[in-house]
Structure formats: structure tokens, C-alpha cells
Design a protein around this nucleic acid. Structure first.
Length: 496
RNA sequence: GGGCGCAUAGCUCAGUCGGAAGAGCAACUGGCUUUUAACCAGUAGGUCCCAGGUUCGAGCCCUGGUGCGCUCACCA
């Protein structure tokens, strides 16, 4: 037992046991979805087919309004909420047990679907069963859980005590299943690739390091599935995708969590332009399916997610915003000094350009926009633009100042890929991989067809589609520091 | 990691100038058969985040720490 357990409620548990009943019975009760009953109840003017029939609902008792010989109480299940009416006349045998119930308890109620004098749809109970006693009291009924720390740490309370929370996560789940269906309809195969990587590749990020005892090797939690998925393209699967949990050992913010979900996909015989079109089709479909329209509210603004989205070349956006050419190293350096945004010189000129690009362009890209043709120097896995080899056949989708997607025509020349990997490893960037992924180069040596790939940050896309300001509000259990109390509690009193 | 802010009853929050720890909801007792955050009367409930310091006296002032939020840096 913990400090949350309330003595009055514990006493009720004991009283129920003393009376020979089980406060935690092993079996539930078959019940109907509340949402369906509300639908089948009709309106006060036009009663539906289930009015005056016997129904059973099961769920959490959210409170009780006790009138002495009559009690009204809302019951919540996964689909909705309905009122139950407990009358002494109809529950003669059970009536003395009513004091054993508290708000927060899990119950099953059988009765007749009807209405109150004011027309409220109500299950008039003929049978009440306690399914599980809540010894911890629920949060205040009107405000719910508003302390954000408590909401994230106790999501199991937040989901039923705070308005709209469950809806966000239902939408997130639908977003994933709609995306899967969308890709499967286009011939993509869902695959699973390793989470434990011997080399942290496919992105530029600090990895989490772990150790495998039997093999006695250090392994990295994946920062991206990219290099494995492209091996599968070499393997002839041609169209693959993975819903990939990625791990990056970096800071937390309103848009960053150390573990996050990317939908990454690769398609043979496609290039970056096909990926742009696929992105537009997927995102606008999700907007319609989840919100009912292509125009979605986000951060007190309206975002139009109808295809096509705006497009802008990286170099043009950069030069328009900064007033300098991105090839002019002296001018770029000068601009960086002005903005107090200098990066170490050893990381290279285009890292500095990209740093300025983030400040001057990305943060201002509010409306859905594809940025295209990033510098090849910062796109080591992308094919260069044949018309202009300084730039890559690459794009990113930005919405509301956030990068949502990243995609490109994949580099499939093994010699060029090896050169780019070697340049990365040689650079002094602490986030570069520590060694060249020779196995990946060898895969390319067997021949990878012309291929394009795309990665979508599903958490951020979910933020936009559910109008949540923080990534933590679209993660069921966002990463949190462990509380000292949790540590000492277990260490000092294991028998509690 | 830096800056700013928050931490008081199970929950949501007041707490004035440094002078006896408060309210609503939840709980408990009693009343009430159609409520909609039901209502009425009563009872109980506190490590004021933690540790120091200043003071006759600290929820309040000072120092350090912990947790969380926002923000900057890093990143998607």
C-alpha cells in the first residue's frame, strides 16, 4: 500500500471481504459499449430501439449524487459516458451495500434503459456489481488533473479524469492504422529491423549506448532504421516501411523526446518527387480522416493541409532570408557572427549554413512547405542533383516551424557512398558515426535500384493533427526524470 | 547545461506587512426518490517540496538542493 491509498476506502475493502464478497472479483461482466447504447437510445422525442430494454454497462464510476433513496452516477467506459440511476425500490437486496461504493470504483450495472423527468438517458439499475475497488481517490471532479507533471506521470488517471486526453490517443492510434493501410494499398510491406545496432547510422545524432553480455559488445539503440531498410531494397522487397521507435540521446523540449516514432519508407523506381507527392497524399488524407477537413487548427491558427503544399528551394530561401549567397563563406561567417550563431569551423561551411538556415528560414516556415535541394554536403545518404551537384535531390516538409518529414532520392553508388561515409567519420562532428558501415557499402555493391525514401516524424504530425502544443501531450508516457521518492520508497520499504 | 517561473489537505487553489494553516471538491456522519459540478447541516484531514540560515517569531525573507513547466543551446 502507498500513501495514495485512503483509509476509508481500505476499510470498505475489508468490510466487503468480511461480508463474504470479493472486492476484486476474478471475472468481469459482458457489457455493451456505452456509445452504442446512447445511439440506440434515440432522443426524448423519438425514443430509439433500446429504450425500455435491459442493458448492461461496465466501467468507472465517476461520482455519485446521493438523494437518500435515489442515487445518480455517471459511468465511463472506453467509448463514452452514461448515467445510471440507482433506486432503493429497484435494488432492495443490494441497497445496504451502496455505502461500499466510491467515485473511481469499477462497476457493472444492469438495468432498463430509460430517461429521467428532464429527459436524461439513464440506466435504471436492477443489479449492481463491484468489479474492482479503487482505494486511491480520483482527482477533483470538475478540474480533473491539471498539474502537468501529475498528468504525465499518472497517465492512467489522466486518461479518464481529464477531458479530451483519451481522444488524442485514439486519434494517434487511428493515424498509425490509417497510415499503414495507405501504404499497404500502395504495395508497401511492413517490416521490422533491429533496434540494437552495432553502428549508429542513418542519421546524425548522439546515440544511447548499451552492452550485450553474451557477445561482450557495445550496441547502440537505433537513431534511424534507414540503412537496414535500404538493405531490404537491395534484397528486392522494393517497397518497405517500418514504424520505427528511434532513440536519440539529446535534450528534451516541447518538440523532442528521447524516444520518438518515425514512419520510414523506401520505394524502388521512385525519386524524391514521388515522395513529395506521396507525403502530400498521406498527410491530407490523415487530416480529413482525423479532423474531417484539410484545414486543421493548430496553436490558435488554421493550417491548410490540402495538396499541393508550398515549395521552396533551400538556396533561394536561404539567400532571400539572409541576403547572402550560401557559397560565400566569408559572408556566411559574418552573418553567423551577427546572429551569434557560429558553429565550430571544423564542422565545415555547410554546417554553418544549415545553422543559419534553421534560424532564418525554418523557424519562420509556418504554412506547410516543402524545402527542397538541401546542400549535398549535409545530405550524405542522398543522391546529388545531376543539374547542380552542390545540392541533393532532397526535401523536408515543415509545418508550424517544425520539421515533419525528410526524404530524398537515395544514393546507390557504393563508391560515392563510401567516400561520403569516410568524410563523415573523418569530420570532428561529435555526432558523426564512429566508423564506416562497411556492410552497408557491400550491400550497395550488389546493386540497389533507383530508390527514394521518406521519414515522417509521427509524433510531430500527431501534434498538428490533434492540436497539441507539446510532444508530451501526444506521448502516453513521455520521458521523465524518476522522482527521488520513488527510488527511496522501494529501497527502504520493500514490504509496503 | 544556462535563464525565467512554479511547488500549501487526496484534487483545484487562496494565504495581505514576517505574528494562531484556509476555501471549494473528494472522504466521513446525518437528511433528502429525478439530479446534471445536486443541495442542506456537521466531522475529520497538513513533512506549507527538502536542508540550512536570518529573526523573539518564517508558508512568506536569504542560501543551497530536488522535481516540473517555459525558454535558450543541441536535435527530428
Amino acid at each position: 500500500m502507498t500513501e495514495l491509498s485512503h483509509p476509508d476506502r481500505q476499510a470498505k475493502v475489508e468490510a466487503i471481504r468480511a461480508a463474504g464478497r470479493d472486492p476484486y472479483p476474478p471475472r468481469g461482466v459482458p457489457a455493451e459499449a456505452i456509445e452504442a447504447l446512447i445511439e440506440a437510445g434515440g432522443t426524448p422525442e423519438e425514443p430509439g430501439p433500446r429504450i425500455d430494454t435491459e442493458v448492461t454497462v461496465a466501467g468507472r464510476l465517476l461520482g455519485m449524487r446521493d438523494f437518500g433513496k435515489l442515487i445518480f452516477a455517471p459511468v465511463l467506459d472506453r467509448t463514452g459516458r452514461i448515467q445510471v440511476g440507482l433506486r432503493r425500490d429497484a435494488l432492495t437486496d443490494w441497497w445496504p451495500q451502496r455505502k461500499e461504493l466510491d467515485g473511481g470504483d469499477l462497476v457493472a450495472v444492469t438495468g432498463t434503459l430509460g430517461r429521467t423527468q428532464k429527459g436524461q438517458l439513464t440506466v435504471w439499475a436492477t443489479e449492481v456489481k463491484l468489479l474492482a475497488k479503487a482505494v486511491a481517490p480520483p482527482p477533483e471532479k470538475w478540474h480533473g488533473l491539471v498539474d502537468v507533471e501529475q498528468r504525465y506521470r499518472r497517465r492512467y488517471v489522466d486518461l479518464w479524469a481529464s477531458e479530451g486526453v483519451r481522444e488524442v490517443f485514439v486519434k494517434r492510434s487511428r493515424m498509425l492504422s490509417l497510415s499503414r493501410r495507405f501504404l499497404e494499398e500502395r504495395g508497401f510491406l511492413e517490416v521490422e529491423t533491429p533496434t540494437l545496432h552495432p553502428i549508429a547510422g542513418g542519421a546524425t545524432a548522439r546515440p544511447f549506448v548499451t552492452h550485450h553480455n553474451a557477445l561482450d559488445v557495445d550496441l547502440f539503440l537505433r537513431i534511424a532504421p534507414e540503412l537496414y531498410l535500404k538493405r531490404l531494397i537491395v534484397g528486392g522487397l522494393e517497397r518497405v516501411f517500418e514504424v520505427s521507435r528511434n532513440f536519440r540521446n539529446e535534450g528534451l523540449s516541447v518538440r523532442h523526446n528521447p524516444e520518438f516514432t518515425m514512419l520510414e519508407l523506401y520505394q524502388a523506381q521512385a525519386d524524391y518527387r514521388d515522395m513529395i507527392e506521396l507525403t502530400e497524399a498521406l498527410v491530407s488524407m490523415l487530416a480529413v480522416e482525423l479532423t474531417g477537413a484539410t484545414e486543421v487548427p493548430f496553436r490558435a491558427k488554421a493550417y491548410d493541409l490540402a495538396a499541393p503544399f508550398e515549395r521552396g528551394r533551400y538556396d533561394e530561401l536561404f539567400e532571400r532570408a539572409s541576403g547572402v549567397s550560401l557559397f560565400d563563406e566569408a559572408a556566411v561567417r559574418q552573418k553567423a557572427r551577427e546572429l551569434d550563431a557560429e558553429v565550430p569551423a571544423e564542422l565545415g561551411h555547410f554546417k554553418q549554413v544549415d545553422r543559419l538556415f534553421e534560424i532564418l528560414v525554418e523557424d519562420e516556415l509556418d504554412r506547410p512547405t516543402f524545402v527542397t535541394h538541401h546542400p549535398a554536403a549535409i545530405s550524405p545518404l542522398a543522391k546529388v542533383d545531376p543539374d547542380n551537384p552542390d545540392f541533393a535531390e532532397r526535401f523536408e516538409l515543415h509545418i508550424g516551424g517544425m520539421e515533419i518529414c525528410n526524404g530524398f532520392t537515395e544514393l546507390n553508388d557504393p563508391v560515392e557512398q563510401e567516400e561520403r561515409f569516410r568524410a563523415q567519420v573523418a569530420s570532428l562532428d561529435p555526432e558523426s558515426p564512429g566508423e564506416v558501415d562497411i556492410d552497408y557499402i557491400q550491400a550497395l555493391e550488389y546493386g540497389m535500384p533507383p530508390t527514394a525514401g521518406l521519414g515522417i516524424g509521427m509524433d510531430r504530425l500527431c501534434m498538428v493533427l490533434t492540436n497539441q502544443d507539446s510532444i508530451r501531450d501526444v506521448l502516453l508516457f513521455p520521458t521523465m526524470r524518476r522522482r527521488p521518492a520513488q527510488v527511496s520508497e522501494e529501497a527502504s520499504s520493500p514490504d509496503c
